Computed example of a mutant assay.
Amino acid sequence: MLRAIVSTFLLSLAWTSVARSQDFPPVVDVELVLAVDVSWSMDIDEQRLQREGYVNAIRDPEVIRAIRRGDWGRIAVTYVEWAGVGLQRTVVPWSIIESQRDADLFAKALGEASIGRMRRTSISSALLMSAALFDNGIDGFRKVIDVSGDGPNNMGPMVTEARDRVIRQGITINGLPIMVKQRIRGDFFQIENLDEYYRGCVIGGMGSFMITIESREQFGQAIRRKLILEIAGAQPTVQKAQIEVPQSVAVDCMVGEKQWRRWRRFDQW
């Protein structure tokens, strides 16, 4: 048994060496798209907390340990901001992270980049654009889109159609619904059950899950925890108001589009 384990380990090292010497695609445990909502419904202080949460999480020692525990001990990450249809931008391109130095460089690039603010909310377009980014010359065992947002889809393709199209490509969609405003004050474009909306209309694929954020103080911890779970590929335990796994729920996946049409009619009066 020991001989077999040693042989497998040596074979893995040999393959890694050959792959690098012959310029084969880099092999990683997971390719992760961090797709972050920067629509106008997100206050600038919320966006800063969100950005700071990702900067700190990616270089956190626990996240680095999770990366190193993988079969290949490295991941590929890119950071994307999104809002309405056609309003997406890559803030940090695909980067291989397998060491603290790699993580620090990624965090530095992310921390120094400006934060965009754009109009409308098209989760569907963000998912489709993120899925296209996996055509990147990297060979990942798992492909994951980590999408955050504080409201429902209100333009572009139906979110369920985009979700299903992405899932059929073997990509997992995890969610980070931001419900700070739902708990503090009302807003025309907010919905009280954003967690149920994400669970029923947005996330999906093998091992998909979401973590809700219900206060500003939760940004950093929730983002760090979510990254660790995505890197480890683990199915989290369900905890109320923190982690949710997909379930069959009755939710209107067109609620955002209906809100927008009502607002347009009201605005024209």
Rank of each mutant, 00 (worst) to 15 (best):
K240R: 15
N153W: 01
I97T: 05
S95H: 10
R265D: 11
G111H: 05
D71K: 15
W260N: 12
F188I: 13
R117V: 11
P61Y: 03
W269Q: 12
V166Y: 01
V92I: 12
V55H: 03
F219L: 05
F134H: 01
Q239W: 09
S124Y: 00
I243W: 05
I123E: 00
M42W: 04
M1H: 14
R199F: 02
R74E: 02
T121I: 07
N153C: 04
I171V: 03
T172L: 02
A66F: 06
F219E: 03
A109Y: 07
R48D: 13
L229I: 08
G207Q: 13
I97L: 12
I167M: 00
S208Y: 05
F9D: 10
W72I: 08
S12M: 15
A109P: 05
D104H: 10
W40V: 14
F266T: 11
V202L: 01
R168H: 01
G175K: 00
D139F: 14
R51F: 08
R216C: 05
G186C: 12
S7N: 11
N56I: 03
A131T: 04
P26M: 11
Q235K: 13
V147F: 02
D29Q: 04
S124H: 01
Y79R: 06
G84N: 04
S17K: 10
R216I: 07
W72T: 09
P236V: 03
N174Y: 00
V180K: 04
E62N: 07
I115A: 07
I191H: 00
I228W: 02
A83M: 01
I171E: 03
G220Y: 08
A103G: 06
S124L: 04
V92T: 06
E112I: 13
Q182Y: 05
R120T: 06
G205T: 13
Y197Q: 00
A83E: 03
R168W: 04
L127G: 08
A66T: 05
R185V: 14
D104R: 08
S17V: 13
V251Q: 03
W15R: 14
P152R: 00
N153V: 06
M206R: 15
L11K: 12
V91Q: 08
D23Y: 10
P152V: 02
G156T: 00
E52G: 09
L87H: 09
V63M: 01
S41H: 05
A250N: 15
S130G: 05
E196G: 11
V36Q: 12
I178P: 05
R101Q: 14
V255M: 01
E257Y: 06
D252N: 10
Q259D: 08
V6C: 09
W94G: 03
A19S: 15
E161C: 01
E244T: 14
A57D: 06
T78S: 12
R224Q: 08
P26T: 05
R224V: 02
L227Y: 04
F219W: 02
T160K: 08
V30A: 13
T8P: 08
F219P: 00
F266E: 11
A241V: 12
A83Q: 00
W260H: 12
I178Q: 03
R74F: 05
I138R: 08
F219C: 05
Q242D: 15
